[in-house]
């Protein structure tokens, strides 16, 4: 890398940062700030959940969350379009295998707990989904090439589950006259829980599948001539 050029860019970036800091400071100084906070907290009892962040994510600004699931889906579809997954790692040794046997169920359980607790405390679908995904990652690291995921057809249904349930509920509500993603009073809690459950599964599967890094193999992956070098088993 050219030293002068990076120095020049460094100076430019530093100037930009100083300017941004100045602007940020002046804004903070002059504006004590009436945010959406009071409004969001005021309407919290109607939202069906008692955790304000979950209320924003799944009620006030549920539309953003729906699209975020779509972003996740797009990333996975992009990854799948690049070709089949590579073979996984060598099977875990006994110590790791024993640990995996413990950690994976624990992660799934904790995920369930996080999902449930999200209604009134920090937690929710994304945290839970991330744990499920992590369970998949651990499985793959321990030698399970498919990260414990089901067949491709099942995976396809599971990864669209979150956005599917979300948008179908939204459209159903629009059809019944409440408006897109406007929960009827009193029903918000259960609808949110339903959506969150579906989203958790979808996020978990999507993250794990993304870690696998390619289209799921149907059955026994055909051994390509290039495969052995990536397959440590072949070396022994």
């Amino acid at each position: 890398m050219n030293r002068d050029l990076s120095l020049l860019i460094g100076i430019l970036v530093a100037l930009l940062a100083v300017l941004l800091l100045g602007v940020f400071h002046s804004t903070l100084a002059l504006d004590p700030g009436q945010r959406l906070a009071s409004l969001a907290l005021e309407r919290l009892p109607e939202s069906g959940v008692s955790n304000p962040v979950t209320a924003v994510l799944l009620n006030y600004r549920a539309y953003d969350t729906l699209l975020e699931l779509a972003v996740l889906l797009a990333a996975l579809l992009g990854i799948w379009s690049l070709g089949p997954a590579r073979p996984g790692f060598q099977p875990a040794g006994p110590a790791l295998a024993a640990m995996v046997d413990w950690v994976v169920p624990l992660a799934i359980l904790t995920g369930g707990y996080l999902l449930w607790v999200g209604g009134h405390a920090p937690g929710g679908a994304f945290q839970a989904g991330a744990l499920l995904g992590a369970a998949g990652v651990i499985l793959r690291l321990a030698g399970n090439a498919g990260a414990g995921l089901p067949s491709e057809a099942w995976q396809r249904w599971l990864i669209v589950l979150g956005a599917g349930v979300f948008s179908l509920i939204g459209l159903l509500l629009a059809l019944t006259g409440y408006g897109f993603l406007s929960y009827p009073p009193g029903q918000a809690k259960w609808l949110i829980l339903l959506i969150e459950t579906a989203a958790t599964i979808a996020i978990g599967v999507t993250l794990a599948a993304a870690y696998v890094g390619g289209r799921p193999q149907m059955a026994q992956p055909p051994r390509s001539p290039l495969a052995p070098m990536a397959d440590p088993e072949a070396k022994r």
Partner: peptide, 19 residues
Amino acid sequence: DSLILPIALPLLGALLTTA
């Protein structure tokens, strides 16, 4: 509500074509 259709319909289509 029809405002949401040009967004919701292709999204549903994307989900179905995935599945």
